[in-house]
Computed example of a mutant assay.
Amino acid sequence: MDHLLVVNAGSSSIKFRIYAVLPGDRLDLDLKGAFDGIGAHPHLFADDDHGRRVEDDAFTAGQVPTVAAALDRLDDWLLERLGGERPVAVGHRVVHGGPDFANPVPVDDAVIAKLEALVPLAPLHQPNNLLPIRIIRDRLPGVPQVACFDTAFHRGHPDVADRFALPEALYREGVRRYGFHGLSYEFIAHRLAEIAPDLAKGRVVACHLGAGASACAMVDGRSVESTMGFTALDGLPMATRTGQLDPGVVLYLVQAKGLGAAAIERLLYRESGLLGLSGVSADMRDLEASREPGAVLAIDYFVHRIVREIGALAAAMQGLDGIVFTAGIGENSAALRARVMERLAWLGLVADPAANARRDTVVSAAGSRVQALVVPTDEEFMIARHTLATLRAMAPAG
């Protein structure tokens, strides 16, 4: 039986899945897992298709100091798990596709070169997305690899949502609003069509709230506006990223504080957001458990920005039929969902506190004019679908 491998690599973790390809190109999840804590407390774990734990190994930091070292161990383990058989293809999440990539593409040297040029636009993600591609090319030559982009879902935006008020020459060079978390939003659109088809055809704001956070306006399942722009810094505050920032602040940091590009990048990407506001933690669970004033401020600010962006996206769509909470915070923090829904009562959203506490799919009350749902995201499934479709398109005719 043919299998697909999906790899979603970050700075200190690698999420992976193996899908069996069934007749009719149906995808059946065979294995899911992750290698997390790389370089600190490395931990490899995996569950089979019934949710049973089939691997649970801890390592010292010295044994698995880097993502590359983790990939070496993971590759050996996966090949053993597949009985020595190679996957028929490997799909990867790549955060930034730039102006050249509006759809998933087979990976070759030219594609890699273009994606490497985008590293400055996604320094936390792009290098780690590309590393597994290189390693797998060396270890599994001949196995097709497919790059699937977080920016692709947003490529149909109208010009007014796609541009900055900058000279045309910069737009032609690729300085434009791309939007991110597209694989997550694409899955939400796909899932809404199954569980709430009427809502899926309407005007929805999906809120991807995790260590990275953004919101996306969707009309009839298509992205029309997003809070993220040229880079994954824009919009909502995140675990360690600023979110929306007056560009004059960057000029001030250069001119008055004497900071260089590297120091500013570190500040904006790694030292700001919930961590910078709270001085306590970048993790929402820690903040919700803390009584420190900074933690309270960070949560208040996060809620304020979410509500503000939902209002702006609703205005862009000229109305709002529903909101969707997804990703780590969105799916798991009932307290944060309750605060956001309370602040949206003026739009006609009436929360159901009991349903919200249970994390039901629908967390708004019956009769609420604006619906609120909790929908777990599944970026890896979308990557698998795109990878299989790309693989089939690569096959010679006849």
Rank of each mutant, 00 (worst) to 15 (best):
I306L: 14
M341W: 11
A312R: 08
D300M: 03
N332C: 00
I323L: 09
G328T: 09
V340H: 14
G311K: 05
A327V: 15
L336M: 14
L313S: 03
G311T: 12
S290C: 08
A334Q: 04
V324A: 03
D321H: 12
V324N: 07
A315N: 08
S333W: 02
R339W: 01
R291V: 04
G328A: 11
V296P: 00
V296Q: 15
G319D: 02
T326S: 13
V303R: 09
L320T: 09
L336T: 13
M341Y: 15
A289M: 11
G328V: 06
H304F: 11
I299L: 13
A315V: 10
I310M: 05
A316V: 07
A312G: 13
L287C: 12
F302A: 04
E292G: 02
H304W: 11
A334Y: 00
E292H: 10
F325K: 03
D286P: 02
A345F: 10
E331H: 04
E342H: 13
L344R: 04
A316L: 08
A312H: 11
A335D: 10
I329L: 12
A314F: 14
A335N: 08
E342R: 14
R305N: 15
D321F: 13
W346Y: 14
L297A: 12
G294D: 11
I299V: 15
F302W: 03
Y301P: 00
G328Y: 07
